[in-house]
Amino acid sequence: MNNSGSDYGLWGLVVVNSLIFIGFSYSFFKPVNLRDWRSFGAYSAFIVALFAEMYGFPLTIYLLSGWLGSKFPGVNLFGHDAGHLWWLLTGQQGNPHFGALHLLSAVFLFAGFALLSKSWHVLYHAQRRHQLAQAGPYRHVRHPQYIGFVAIMFGFLLQWPTLLTLAMFPVLVLMYVRLAISEERDSEKAFGQAWRDYAEVTPRFIPRRGRRNGTRAAHTH
């Protein structure tokens, strides 16, 4: 195993990148109540764990170094490129930033942030009017902002998987599902039949192909 150089220990980059991605998401999500802060806090923990391994200390590489060293004896495991584990494990050559999975991850990241932005814009104006929202992503799914968070986390897993974030991801997805169900109970209490009519024709997370509805979404994320 070649450990001639390390690209880690850059804790300043951990802080800067964490603040950028957490702050950018905060500008769209705007947590209000305890439930909002729980969902946003879970996402933030994922981001910090990710960048701590990406630039700080490569815990996953360290734990797997014996196996990776025997499988890839000529690779500097503590160089930054080796942290792109999908790239390394599939034996790809060249710059991993131009690999298919890395480019696909950029698509998921962009889509996730765009969904957060569009959803918040619709929800913000609906809240000010104390009405159910009508336009945008809420026409297709009941919880577009949660989908946005999941898309962002999945995008990061495509380019930089770690043992911790891989373990966190299904737990956070389950948490968002439970939060969504809890929010729906509150929405039904607040909007009554209007919410039930909306929920009947609008899927919770996965849009129906070729089907649009003009009903209004409640104050959900």
Rank of each mutant, 00 (worst) to 15 (best):
G5L: 05
D7H: 15
V14H: 10
V14G: 11
V14E: 07
N17W: 04
G23Y: 10
G23T: 09
P31W: 08
V32N: 08
V32H: 05
N33E: 13
N33D: 15
F40S: 05
F40H: 08
A42V: 06
A42P: 00
Y43P: 05
F46V: 07
V48H: 06
V48E: 06
A49H: 02
F51C: 09
M54I: 07
P58M: 11
T60K: 11
I61C: 03
I61Q: 08
S65C: 04
G66P: 11
S70F: 00
F72C: 10
P73G: 13
V75H: 01
N76F: 01
N76I: 04
L77F: 01
G79A: 15
G79I: 01
W86R: 01
W86A: 02
L88Q: 02
T90Y: 00
T90V: 07
Q92I: 00
Q93P: 00
G94M: 12
G94S: 10
N95H: 07
F98L: 14
L101P: 00
L103R: 10
L103F: 10
L104A: 15
L104T: 14
F108G: 12
F108Y: 14
F110C: 10
L115K: 03
L116W: 11
S119L: 11
H121G: 00
H121C: 00
L123W: 05
Y124V: 05
H125D: 10
Q131A: 14
L132Y: 03
Q134V: 10
Q134Y: 15
A135E: 13
G136E: 07
P137W: 12
V141S: 07
R142H: 06
H143P: 00
Q145A: 12
Q145G: 07
Q145R: 08
Y146A: 04
F149G: 04
F149N: 08
M153Y: 06
F154G: 02
F156V: 01
L158G: 07
L158K: 03
W160M: 02
P161R: 04
P161Q: 01
L164V: 12
P170T: 11
V171Y: 06
V171H: 06
V171M: 13
L172W: 07
V173P: 02
V173D: 07
R178N: 09
E183I: 05
R185C: 01
E188M: 02
A194K: 14
R196V: 13
Y198W: 10
A199I: 03
V201L: 12
P203H: 03
I206E: 04
I206Q: 06
P207W: 09
R208C: 10
R211A: 09
R211V: 14
N213K: 09
T215N: 03
R216V: 00
R216M: 03
A217S: 13
A217D: 02
H219V: 01
T220W: 05
